[in-house]
């Protein structure tokens, strides 16, 4: 009985910790993105609220909470109200399997440094992240607005185009690590990160998670300058805030998955493992922000062409080559 209680308390504690850290990171990533984009465009970015604008996230939250919560006429009530929740929840749920450090010994037990170390962690990530598109799609459809509907249709077709390559780009990783568990995948990269062993898979994965995060150059469902706001055109107040926060939580989550799959997770010299993990995640997020400052948005058909005619064959070939090499090395 005491054993079960211990497990329950432990999992709840880990949940609370991760929830807090991820939300904090998401809030400050918004600020970091605005600051960095500003400097890249020779502006200052937000610098009014608090020193260097560090209280800006707080101000944003207060603004979002006190704004009018609006339901458009003829909107599908239930789906409209629920959709932002789906986006935020799926983004948070993925984090349950991400290991952010090696196993620790507490009271004579080994505890994985993740909420739970699933033995099908990779598949869990793929499954939950494929659910994320429902938030976008149902939100846009329920708004009963042309722009929102166009945004959600684009979201759907985008998702169909990249999801397959996303899954296939992870197959070589699983083949090299010989496990679906994220913890084992990180352990397999103790000496050399998979980025160096299989750069092609890493590149395909990077492009796919860019599409997964709905960011420039793949922000077709939002496309401010074509579709007003895309799927969240009709949202306001905290509901818009949930979409927004979900997007940035997703950024953190995808950054940490990139770290786990290709950058060697928490492995690194001199510094403690968790610090290494955070550094790598922030580097990936920084890369995302940098890409946003540089590239224009792709067109609808260009994205589908890229997904189906380039990324898919490349990742299939990559699986073949990786398999042949592994077989040849007798691994």
């Amino acid at each position: 009985m005491a054993d079960t209680l211990f497990t329950v308390v432990l999992i709840l504690a880990k949940l609370a910790l991760i929830f807090g850290v991820v939300l904090f990171m998401a809030a400050y990533l918004v600020l970091a993105e605005r600051k960095i984009l500003g400097r890249m465009q020779l502006r200052y970015g937000p610098n009014r609220v608090g020193p260097f604008g560090l209280m800006q996230p707080l101000a944003d939250v207060i603004k979002l909470l006190t704004k009018e919560d609006f339901l458009p006429a003829r909107a599908d009530k239930w789906l409209f109200l629920v959709a932002p929740g789906i986006t935020a929840v799926t983004a948070l749920l993925v984090f349950a399997v991400v290991p952010f450090g090696p196993t620790i010994e507490v009271f004579g037990r080994t505890i994985p440094a993740a909420v739970v170390d699933l033995n099908v962690g990779v598949l869990y990530f793929l499954g939950v992240s494929s659910m994320a598109v429902y938030g976008v799609v149902l939100g846009g459809w329920a708004s009963c607005s042309k722009y929102s509907l166009l945004g959600s249709v684009r979201g759907l077709s985008q998702m169909v185009s990249y999801e397959l390559s996303l899954g296939l780009s992870l197959v070589p990783v699983i083949m090299m690590a010989r496990s679906f568990s994220l913890h084992d995948i990180v352990m397999a990269q103790a000496s050399v990160p998979f980025l160096l062993l299989n750069p092609v898979a890493c590149f395909v994965f990077l492009i796919c998670i860019l599409a997964e995060s709905n960011r420039i150059p793949f922000d077709l469902p939002e496309a401010e300058n074509e579709l007003v706001g895309g799927f969240h055109t009709e949202y306001s107040g905290m509901r818009f805030g949930l979409f927004f926060v979900g997007e940035y939580i997703n950024l953190v989550v995808l950054g940490s998955l990139m770290t786990v799959f290709f950058l060697g997770g928490w492995h690194g010299p001199w510094l403690p493992p968790v610090v290494w993990f955070l550094i790598k995640v922030l580097m990936v997020c920084g890369l995302f922000i940098w890409i946003r400052a540089c590239l224009p948005r792709l067109r609808y058909d260009q994205l589908m062409n890229l997904g189906w005619k380039v990324l898919l064959p490349v990742s299939l070939l990559n699986i073949l080559v990786t398999g042949a090499v592994l077989l040849g090395l007798g691994l």
């Binding site: 919560d69 609006f70 339901l71 909107a75 009530k77 109200l81 935020a88």
Partner: peptide, 12 residues
């Protein structure tokens, strides 16, 4: 016609 969200607004 849908009415304004009241207590339902915290559903998400």
């Amino acid at each position: 016609k849908s009415s304004a969200p009241g207590w339902l607004s915290w559903t998400p």
